[in-house]
Design a binder for these strands. Structure first.
Length: 489
RNA sequence: CGCGGGGUAGGGUAACGGUAACCCGUCAGGCUCAUAACCUGAAAAUUGCCGGUUCGAUUCCGGCCCCCGCAACCA
């Protein structure tokens, strides 16, 4: 028997300085759907998510709450581990925290490898410091040589020694990668974007912070005065979760031979498709196979969700009102696979009523009611025949193509096309009426409808696993559900 | 001239060199198995603006306007 093929997929690790919003939920649910689909195809799947827990913002947030950073992140991480149940994620989900001891030692080992290969060096780093804010400012926060908040206070240039990563020497290698692998980043326009960015030339970037100024980070090996810059450590989590460097077998199976896929938001393009790839090159490790870049779910006024704007949507609120699978449905089929998508509670409700209550839920009710009342049960032979029909073969192919290209909307559309066509069959053949005059023909119709319903269940299993299981179970028991699958709201 | 995306019926999206499709909403009809659900049909868009290429442009090219994201610590 051949070894099962392996597959690796990870989300970006959310930064735990605030609570999860629907954008995080979207990314994790999509990765979960892909993971489930690959599993169903027989792959051995490693599905990873986790939390990014170091850095200045967390340190600041914790100290503003008078908490130790570790206490703070231990508290916040529960919001993220809780997503597993809330979003109906696969049981064998791996969850890595960047404060895990295994991750910390992996990040240090990764640093050492980059260092011994000559890709890390120390240099004077000039920072612009605003005495008014008592903070260092980035160029984007500066206008006319002053920070926005204190236009009358002069910035002070402070110098400190930092470690730098030789990003610039990987320009050619990165461009070669983009050239050779046009599907390395999906969608294509994101590949173009990163390619254009790298073509403009790369600058080495700082990968450490003085511990005396920012203590909440992983110690730099061999230098007690510095901790790692949070991105350097966080990206390593994609392989530390596999047990790298100790577990060579797992690394080989899932990273080297598992076509590792990283899901991320559009704001993470550079870190994942350029910085991390260069870091892997520096450490002498194989690169990522593919990076899938989501758009944003935008809030009120088409703006990016953020706490400061107060337009963040908590997935918990949605799940409480509509259920896990309704949320999964929304982020998979209603939100655009690659572009930004607007969100509003009204819109969610509309989509829920139209496609889950009236569409899927109602179809389940009408078919099961007919089969229960007339005691017609599921027939495997009829199912096999239906599944081989041109219509279903075509729909399954469309769904598979959707999954392959990470266009989950397309994958889900195949199911809703089947739902619509099945509603059409009920209307056209009217077995509920025919049963009085042509019993056998009507019974055959109902068997076919049951087969189609089961097919719908099957095609939903990666997208809405709980609902899929319920549908298959209802067919098995041939009994109307006690309450509607998706009650109208 | 920093980079990228977008501007299509009332709202949300799709398509893509050949008379603009889908969902919600609205209106009319049908059906009664079903969650006032389902099916059929209708009204509704000079595809942001200007110019060019073409027999033909929403689609390709150029310019402009507007919105959004990124600009090395927000999925």
């Amino acid at each position: 028997m051949p070894q099962p093929k392996s597959f690796y997929i990870t989300t970006t690790l959310p930064y735990v300085n605030s609570e999860p919003h629907i954008g995080h939920a979207m990314e994790i649910v999509r990765a979960d759907a892909i993971a489930r689909h690959k599993s169903a195809l027989g792959y051995e799947v490693f599905f990873n998510t986790g939390t990014d827990e170091h850095g200045l913002k967390i340190l600041e947030k914790a100290s503003s709450l008078n908490e130790l950073p570790q206490t703070f992140v231990d508290r916040l991480v529960k919001k993220y581990t809780g997503l597993k149940g809330l979003l109906g994620l696969s049981n064998d989900l791996h969850f890595v925290r960047t404060t895990d001891p295994e991750h910390i030692s992996a990040a240090q080992e990764f640093w050492k490898r980059c260092d011994t290969r000559g890709c890390i060096y120390k240099k004077q780093y000039k920072a612009k410091y605003c005495p008014g804010c008592e903070l260092e400012k980035t160029d984007s926060e500066i206008e006319n040589g002053h920070c926005f908040l204190h236009p009358n206070i002069d910035l002070v240039i402070i110098e400190e020694e930092n470690y730098f990563f030789r990003f610039s020497i990987f320009t050619k290698q990165l461009l070669d990668l983009y050239e050779k692998r046009p599907d390395f980043v999906l969608p294509r326009f994101r590949l173009n974007e990163i390619q254009a960015f790298v073509e403009r030339g790369l600058e080495d970037f700082s990968i450490s912070r003085l511990k005396s100024k920012m203590s909440w980070g992983i110690p730099v090996p061999g230098d007690p005065l510095h901790v790692m810059y949070v991105w350097f450590d966080a990206l390593v989590s994609y392989i530390s979760t596999l047990g790298w460097p100790d577990d060579a077998k797992s690394f080989e199976k899932f990273w080297q031979n598992g076509t590792p896929v990283q899901y991320c938001g559009k704001d993470n393009l550079r870190q994942q498709s350029a910085m991390w790839q260069a870091m892997l090159m520096a450490a002498g490790l194989p690169g990522t196979h593919q990076i899938i870049v989501n758009g944003f779910i935008t809030g009120e006024g088409g703006l990016k969700m953020s706490k400061s704007l107060g337009n963040a949507v908590d997935p918990l609120d949605i799940v409480k009102e509509y259920g896990t699978d309704a949320l999964r449905y929304y982020v998979i089929r209603e939100a655009s696979p690659f572009e930004d998508s607007p969100f509003s509670p009204e819109q969610f409700k509309e989509a829920y009523n139209a496609h889950l209550a009236n569409g899927l839920g109602n179809l389940v009710s009408r078919i099961i009611k007919m089969s229960e009342t007339n005691a017609v049960s599921f027939d495997q032979a009829v199912f096999d025949k239906v599944r081989q029909s041109e219509e279903i073969v075509g729909l399954e192919a469309r769904q598979a193509a959707g999954f392959e290209t990470y266009d989950l909307q397309k994958a889900a559309n195949a199911v809703w096309d089947l739902i619509a066509a099945t509603d059409g069959i009920v209307e056209e053949r009217q077995p509920f009426k025919k049963i009085k005059t042509e019993k056998t023909a009507a019974e055959n119709d109902i068997r076919e409808l049951l087969a189609r319903l089961r097919m719908i269940g099957l095609m939903l299993s990666a997208i809405m696993p709980e609902t899929a299981a319920t549908i298959i179970d209802l067919i098995e028991k041939n009994k109307m559900p006690a309450s509607p699958l998706f009650a109208r709201k």
